[in-house]
């Protein structure tokens, strides 16, 4: 339960960082923190106390794995979401660099040509 709470705290921290910080890089960090809080949450969903990694070993029967292994699905989901996060992050950093090139600032509140 405490761990679930931790992921919530991370989520809120990330959200705070995203909303309150003006620096583009900090905003990117904020959204990454949010992503990871959700990844943590996903992993926790699949966790079971005293479980083993969901990998079939030679000295283990399938029934035993089903009984003792943690839920592998959330782990697969986390992997996928990490990959997606990576893609978004790369794009964000790229755009961030180009933004700096054009605006000569990392302050997002000064980048407001589009308004109204």
């Amino acid at each position: 339960m405490v761990l679930y709470f931790l992921s919530l705290v991370l989520f809120v921290m990330g959200l705070y960082c995203l909303v309150a910080k003006k620096n583009i890089v900090k905003k990117i960090i904020g959204i990454t923190i949010i992503e990871y809080s959700i990844n943590l949450f996903l992993i926790l969903i699949g966790y079971r106390r005293g479980g083993v990694a969901p990998i079939l070993m030679k000295d283990m029967s399938v029934a035993e794995l089903v009984e003792r292994g943690v839920d592998p699905l959330p782990q697969a989901l986390v992997l996928t979401s990490i990959v997606i996060g990576l893609g978004v992050l790369a794009l964000m950093v790229g755009v961030c660099l180009r933004l700096y090139e054009k605006y000569k600032t990392f302050d997002m509140s000064e980048i407001n040509r589009l308004r109204g």
Binding site: L15, L18, V19, A20, K22, K27, M108, S109, I111, N112, R113, L114, R115, G116
Partner: peptide, 17 residues
Amino acid sequence: LRAMHDGILSTYLSWVV
């Protein structure tokens, strides 16, 4: 309404939150 859309990302994010 146009004045409310001030082009600042934090404003928009705070609406979402």
